[in-house]
Computed example of a mutant assay.
Amino acid sequence: MKVYLDDERETPIGWVRVYFPEEAIELLKTGKVTEISLDHDLGDDDHGTGYDVVLWIEEAVYTKGFIPPRIKVHSANTSARKKMELGIKNIMLKLNSSA
C-alpha cells in the first residue's frame, strides 16, 4: 500500500490518502505500507505535522527493529523539508549500520 499524507493536494492514483499523522502511523503499524509520501504542514497543528511521522518511524526503527517503507517528502515548506529529509537520512543510516 502507498500512503499519501496531505491536507490539500490531489491524491495520486493508486495511493491511500490520509490527512493526519496518526492515520499514517496506524497504517504504518500494519506493516503493509510499501511507500509513504509526506507533506509537513497539514492545516491542523493539534494533529501535528508530517515530521511527526518521520519521528515515529525513526523511533520504531531504533527501538523495535521496524523496517520502514520507502519514504518521500513532497512538502513545499523548505526548512521543514530539510528537517524531514535529515530524519529520513538518520533512519537510512541506522538501517545500513544494522545490515
Rank of each mutant, 00 (worst) to 15 (best):
P69S: 10
K94S: 11
F20A: 13
I88S: 03
N77S: 10
G48D: 12
L28S: 14
I36E: 11
A24Q: 03
K29G: 04
D44W: 15
V18N: 04
G48E: 09
K29W: 02
K72T: 12
D44S: 13
A80S: 10
D46S: 14
M1V: 07
L5S: 07
K89M: 14
G48L: 10
F66D: 05
P68I: 00
E85D: 09
T78N: 05
A76Q: 09
E58T: 07
G31Y: 09
P21G: 06
T49V: 09
T11H: 04
I36S: 12
E22Q: 13
S37H: 02
G50T: 06
R81H: 03
S37F: 02
V3T: 08
K29T: 06
I88N: 01
S98R: 11
Y4Q: 01
I67R: 03
I91G: 00
I71K: 09
L28Y: 08
E10F: 07
L38A: 11
K89D: 14
D52I: 05
T11K: 07
L42K: 09
T49I: 06
P68W: 01
I25A: 11
R70F: 01
S98P: 00
V18I: 08
I25P: 04
A24H: 02
H74K: 10
S75Y: 04
L27T: 06
R81E: 12
P69M: 02
K82P: 05
D41W: 06
D6Q: 09
K72A: 08
E59H: 13
K83M: 08
R70K: 14
P69A: 05
G14V: 02
L27P: 05
V61Q: 01
D6N: 08
L38C: 07
K32F: 00
D6C: 07
L42E: 08
K64P: 01
A80H: 00
R9H: 11
W15G: 03
I91K: 00
R9G: 04
K32P: 01
G43E: 11
A76I: 13
K94F: 12
S98G: 01
L28N: 11
P12S: 04
V73P: 05
A24T: 03
E59C: 11
L5Y: 10
I88D: 01
A99P: 02
R17S: 12
K94V: 08
E22N: 14
E23F: 01
Y51D: 04
G31I: 05
V16A: 07
S79K: 13
P68N: 07
S37Q: 06
H40A: 06
Y4E: 02
K83A: 12
L28Q: 10
L38S: 12
I67P: 00
T78G: 02
I91C: 01
S75F: 12
I67S: 03
E8M: 12
K72L: 14
E85N: 07
P21K: 05
K32T: 06
Y19L: 15
T30K: 10
G65L: 02
I13K: 09
L86R: 12
K72Y: 14
T11R: 06
S75V: 13
F20L: 06
G65I: 01
E35V: 01
E85L: 15
D6V: 09
Y4N: 03
R9S: 11
L93S: 02
R81S: 07
I71L: 05
N77W: 08
M1Q: 05
F66P: 00
Y4V: 02
V53K: 10
I13Q: 13
W56F: 15
